[in-house]
Simulated assay, not measured.
Amino acid sequence: MKKFVKTTALAMSLLTCVACHANTNSNTKRIAMSQRSAQPVPKIEEPEIKVALLLDTSNSMDGLIDQAKAQLWQIVNELSYAKCDEQNPNLKIALYEYGNDNLNADEGYLRQVIQFSDDLDEISKSLFSLTTKGGNEYCGKVIKAALDQLNWGESNKDLKFIFIAGNEPYTQGNFSYKNASKLAHQNDITVNTIFCGDYNQGVSSYWKDGADLTHGNYMAINHNKATVHITSPYDDRILELNELLNKTYVAYGKVGRKKIELQAEQDSNARGYNKANAVSRTVSKSSRLYKNSTWDLVDAEKEEHFSYDKLEESELPKELKGKSKVEIKSYINKKRKEREKLQLAIVELNTKRRLYIDKKSIDSANGLENAMVKAIRKQAEKKNYKWNN
């Protein structure tokens, strides 16, 4: 009998251990599964189009700078139609000037005007800040500076372009353009050269060789040719909608007031050329590339880490001071719906506008915009980019 009791007790002990072990394994699996499910789903990084624009700002380049100012918005609009594997790539633009006597000689007469940015108003402001004066143009040196100073990233989906424009021999300066091209090519960065003048003269002064070394495009443009803007029957209405669109921005924080003023300033700069250029800017403001989450609550609310709880009373515009969180949310939601409706109307009008413009026969083949867009489209095909326009 004692032997039976001992055997039974031993069996029960073993069963208990097995059960405990099973429960432990089960709990461990549940915890592991819970931990796995609690882990954030990795965010798929959107591809980027990165464009570093290197502009000669010596005395003879007033026409080039003028084209860049006048054609910025057409370039942005063209790039807004790009897609990569069904994703919408972001656009970042950096700007350098070189060859200007006002710049530091020890640094090679070059200056980073703005690093890679997706703030289109700041990019426009930077372009309008450029002036021309004398100078020595060192192409290899400014390319090397852009390679070293800018954050190009490592994604093989990104398009990485340098566009350098000027009219002096490409060989000037103490840093070889060949070494600069080699460094660019090693980092998957394509250098496109734009010679401001006769095509064959650019070839003989090595601008074409500079592009060929990175499989880029060599282009020659008439930089003194005035930008041709075609007016359309839809322009007035688009500009009216732009005024309403501006009223949907809800500036907040320390920089809000300055940024809303900057937005108006760049509207004015675009109008300074003519109505059609202002229309192109309005179309850009209706695209996915016009982002202002750093100062506009409507855009900021869409950001992953935004929280109404973190908003300080002092950051709010006067129309939202003293309001509850529910009232603020309701106000922002109303502004968002207004903006989406206006943007849709602008896009629809622009579709008609583009069809109207396409019917007009205008020779713009030698302009900065045409040269840049043509090069980008051609090289983007290698990475499966397509245009949905």
Score class of each variant (00 low, 15 high):
residue 80 S to D: 02
residue 80 S to M: 03
residue 80 S to C: 02
residue 81 Y to G: 07
residue 81 Y to W: 13
residue 82 A to Q: 12
residue 82 A to R: 06
residue 83 K to Q: 14
residue 83 K to S: 15
residue 84 C to H: 15
residue 85 D to W: 14
residue 85 D to C: 07
residue 85 D to E: 15
residue 86 E to T: 10
residue 86 E to W: 12
residue 87 Q to N: 14
residue 87 Q to E: 12
residue 87 Q to L: 15
residue 87 Q to H: 05
residue 88 N to E: 09
residue 88 N to S: 11
residue 88 N to F: 07
residue 88 N to L: 09
residue 89 P to S: 11
residue 89 P to V: 14
residue 90 N to W: 03
residue 90 N to Y: 13
residue 90 N to L: 13
residue 90 N to E: 10
residue 91 L to N: 02
residue 92 K to A: 06
residue 92 K to T: 10
residue 92 K to R: 15
residue 92 K to Y: 03
residue 92 K to H: 14
residue 93 I to S: 03
residue 94 A to D: 01
residue 94 A to P: 00
residue 94 A to M: 06
residue 95 L to V: 14
residue 96 Y to L: 02
residue 96 Y to I: 03
residue 96 Y to R: 11
residue 97 E to C: 05
residue 97 E to R: 15
residue 97 E to V: 01
residue 97 E to W: 04
residue 97 E to G: 03
residue 98 Y to N: 02
residue 99 G to K: 15
residue 99 G to P: 09
residue 100 N to E: 00
residue 100 N to C: 03
residue 100 N to Q: 07
residue 100 N to L: 06
residue 101 D to A: 10
residue 101 D to Q: 08
residue 102 N to Q: 10
residue 103 L to N: 07
residue 103 L to R: 04
residue 105 A to T: 08
residue 105 A to Q: 08
residue 105 A to V: 09
residue 106 D to N: 09
residue 106 D to G: 00
residue 107 E to N: 10
residue 107 E to F: 08
residue 108 G to R: 12
residue 110 L to Y: 09
residue 110 L to R: 15
residue 111 R to L: 05
residue 112 Q to I: 11
residue 114 I to N: 06
residue 114 I to R: 07
residue 115 Q to N: 10
residue 115 Q to D: 05
residue 116 F to S: 02
residue 116 F to G: 01
residue 117 S to L: 02
residue 117 S to H: 04
residue 118 D to W: 05
residue 118 D to F: 05
residue 119 D to R: 14
residue 120 L to I: 12
residue 120 L to W: 04
residue 121 D to G: 01
residue 121 D to W: 01
residue 121 D to H: 02
residue 121 D to I: 04
residue 121 D to Y: 03
residue 122 E to S: 15
residue 122 E to P: 00
residue 123 I to L: 13
residue 124 S to H: 04
residue 125 K to H: 13
residue 125 K to P: 00
residue 126 S to C: 07
